[in-house]
Design a protein around this nucleic acid. Structure first.
Length: 739
DNA sequence: AGCACGCCGACT
DNA sequence: GTCGGCGTGCTC
């Protein structure tokens, strides 16, 4: 009888699998595809996933080593998720083993057993009473007993500190027999409660149409693009759909962007339904993530809400996927395995034969294109729920207007009016710090980063110059390092400078600056949001952080200080992103009964895209932008991939990319791929960053299949290239940033 | 990606 | 004398 070998996927960037000898004392039937193993790998021990068994191997027998340990009794993942991971690995040209590793919760990746942690609970003894003589003279114990009595299903040990109870009081009560302790699985038994915990809100006519169209398609693959203006009640449509799916005893996956909306969304969903809602979000720790993952896999969590990586969660019986804010860039992972969770959600839904709902007020051009071509069903919600009206836009051409710290006189007047009317103002400026440049008026010297091709941003509060692209920080020079002149002046404005100016202009109201610098401290953001929620006149000033998700019912004026960045940037997606950002920020205004006004300051106030966006709305803008993309042969009318490379010396980068180019051309000829262009090598828009030189090769194809064929062969060969060891390189399929 | 091995410079 | 710098090569 021949020996048994296992083909294992290991967490390494190498695009191949590794064969091992099976452990002799373990039955053959135990090595099922999808079980994890510990194996020796070089000088260390790593956790891998068994793909299949085999009795032949290409590897010389002398090189074969033996599995150290079998971790799982049953396959960790259902075949559907195994397939999804394998598809992802191929499509994004990433090592299968590393894809597996990144698709798993951290603890499983590290080899922890796949079992839900049990938690310690305290329950009151049947005869326990608060007036028991045994606690008469022990106020703290009485307090603890009262808390436990209030929690009919038991008080979890981890709740003690938040209830300000001492472990010693609990121990005393256990000793006296007034409490019992119990290790309980955090999984709750299936409840007989009705699915709904709360009456749903009534849907308006548009919502009803959207709901009906989708609910008719439950149980088969279909993509819906739910394009609803901000405040139109997309979430209510989701909740109605989820109710349907839960009634069919199926589960729902809801993906949300990587902003701080996890807990908010979680509580809204949890309030509505008597089912277990699991959260897979950055603020959830590794242990809880594992618990949530297992609960979804075993069918004990009916709803999973999570960011990008939650897409790989296994489900027992998935019935619907919802991608909220589908246009959001955080769905695309920007390092290592560069996958797009929205695109993979479609793959997953097709495989499970279930519908996907893509929701957004400002859909991506890709999705709109798919809706136009009939591949997705477009459902629009054009009216705001309740009495709220959409805001009015006003473009302010600042070429002829003097600006003081970025604020023009008409804007200042508008802010004054709004505050005087007892309302709130939101000022949006997508730039942190005091000023983006520190310039010497005498010799033209500018603060530049030592490690990047970038200017240093002045942070006045810390008296520092900082690089926003790497971690570099230096002290603000007193005199010009070039000519020793004292004429060093900040040029341009960031939020810090706008804050200073607004404080002078509107000393009577609070100015709340919300950006990465002011919210770094835990709780700082919540404190500021609380002030806003009190509803008194104030000015909210901030970056992107302000644009997404939050409700500011008392804000009736939104000011966008500088909308120019998106209109003349090199990246072909910048106008799309600008439009989405403007509408997202604008969507914060007038969400309650008061109508909102949006003032956009720009040097290009009559730019056609800006005019179209503000006068005819996002859809008109998108049509225009799409026709420009079509004319230029850009996505979604073509498919792109980027080969990025970086190294300490620019020569190493050049050598590698020249080799890659030669290889690509050979492969193009070999496969006879004519409708595939290879552009470059060119330096990245910021050539030097964090001390490394960066350049890239861009591939543009008419057909996805051609691109895939080329990339597959290219990656295989690049891995063997000597020059590839001198440079760090990666492939980005469907890049959303071209740098 | 890690990690070990290996061959040259400034230190107890 | 050796501690450690990072070039080079390998991982079943």
């Amino acid at each position: 009888m021949s020996e048994l070998y296992l083909r294992v996927a290991l967490p390494t960037p190498l695009r191949r699998l590794f064969d091992y000898r099976a452990l002799a004392d373990i039955p053959v039937s135990a090595w099922q595809p999808g079980v994890r193993v510990k194996v020796p790998f070089g000088s260390r021990e790593v956790v891998g996933v068994v793909l299949h068994t085999t009795d032949t191997t290409e590897v010389p027998v002398s090189k074969l080593r033996t599995i150290t340990e079998l971790i799982d009794e049953k396959p960790l993942l259902p075949p559907s998720v195994m397939q999804l991971i394998s598809w992802t690995s191929q499509y994004y040209q990433h090592s299968l083993g590393d894809t597996f590793s990144r698709a798993l919760p951290v603890l499983l990746r590290q080899g922890e057993p796949a079992v839900a942690q049990k938690k310690l609970f305290y329950t009151a003894a049947t005869d326990a009473q608060l007036d028991d003589v045994r606690v008469k003279n022990a106020p703290r114990q009485r307090q603890a007993l009262q808390a436990v009595l209030q929690h009919k299903r038991g008080l979890a040990h981890e709740q003690l500190s938040s209830l300000e109870l001492q472990k010693s009081s609990i121990d005393a009560l256990l000793e006296k027999g007034l409490l019992h302790k119990e290790w309980r699985s955090v999984h709750q038994p299936p409840s007989n409660l009705p699915v709904l915990a709360q009456m749903p809100l009534a849907l308006n006519a548009e919502q009803k149409v959207a709901f009906d169209s989708i609910s008719q398609q439950l149980g088969r693959f279909k993509v819906f693009l739910l394009a609803g203006v901000t405040g139109s009640g997309k979430t209510e449509v989701y909740l109605h759909l989820i109710e349907q799916v839960l009634n069919k005893k199926q589960q729902v996956l809801v993906l949300i962007p990587e902003i701080n909306l996890g807990p908010q969304t979680f509580s809204r969903f949890q309030q509505r339904f008597n089912v277990r809602v699991a959260l897979l979000h950055s603020e959830v720790n590794d242990r809880e993530r594992l618990n949530a993952w297992l609960a979804a896999r075993d069918g004990q969590a009916e709803i999973v809400i999570g960011t990008r990586s939650a897409l790989f969660t296994p489900f027992k019986n998935l019935g619907l996927i919802i991608i909220d804010e589908e246009h959001d860039a955080s769905y695309k992972q920007q390092e290592a395995l560069r996958y797009h969770a929205r695109d993979l959600a479609l793959v997953r839904a097709r495989q499970a034969d279930i519908p996907v709902v893509l929701g957004s007020a400002t859909p991506s051009l890709e999705s709109l294109h798919n809706a136009n071509s009939g591949r997705y069903a477009l459902l629009r919600l054009n009216t705001r729920a309740g009495t709220a009206k959409l805001p009015q836009f006003k473009r302010l051409d600042v070429r002829s207007l003097p600006l003081d710290s970025g604020i023009s006189m008409p804007l200042q007047k508008a802010i004054e009016r709004t505050l005087a009317a007892g309302q709130q103002v939101l000022v949006f400026l997508n730039r942190r710090g005091f000023s983006p440049v520190l310039l010497c008026n005498d010799c033209g010297w500018m603060g530049k980063c030592r490690d990047c091709d970038a200017r240093l941003t002045l942070h006045q509060r810390y008296n520092e110059l900082r690089c926003h692209h790497c971690g570099h920080v230096e002290k603000r020079p007193l005199a010009c390092p070039g000519c020793e002149s004292l004429q060093l002046h900040p040029v341009g404005e960031g939020t810090e400078r706008a804050e200073e100016r607004l404080q002078i202009l509107f000393a009577q109201v609070p100015i709340l600056r919300i950006d990465r610098d002011t919210t770094a401290r835990k709780g700082a953001l919540d404190a500021m949001l609380n002030t806003v929620n009190q509803g008194k006149p104030c000015i909210l000033l901030g970056t992107q952080m302000l644009a997404k998700g939050h409700h500011f019912p008392r804000v009736t004026l939104v000011a966008i200080l500088n909308a120019d960045g998106g209109l003349f940037s090199a990246d072909f997606r910048s106008s799309e992103r600008m439009a989405q950002l403007i509408l997202q920020v604008a969507g914060r205004a007038g969400r309650a009964q008061d109508p909102g006004e949006v003032i956009i300051q720009s040097h290009l106030a009559d730019h056609p895209l800006l005019v179209q966006l503000t006068e005819q709305g996002y859809f008109a803008f998108a049509e225009q932008a799409l026709s420009e993309r079509r004319a230029a042969g850009l996505p979604p009318y073509s498919y792109m991939a980027l080969l990025r490379a970086e190294a300490v010396s620019s020569i190493q980068v050049d050598n590698f990319l020249q080799d890659a180019l030669a290889l690509s051309e050979q492969l193009l000829a070999h496969y006879q791929l004519q409708q595939l262009e290879c552009l470059g090598p060119v330096a990245a828009p910021m050539e030097r960053r964090a001390g490394r030189y960066r350049a890239q090769l861009l591939f543009i194809a008419h057909k996805r299949k051609d691109l895939q064929q080329l990339l597959h062969a290219l990656c295989f060969n690049l891995e063997l290239l000597p020059s590839a060891r001198q440079a760090r390189w990666s492939v980005d399929v469907d890049p959303i940033d071209l740098f």
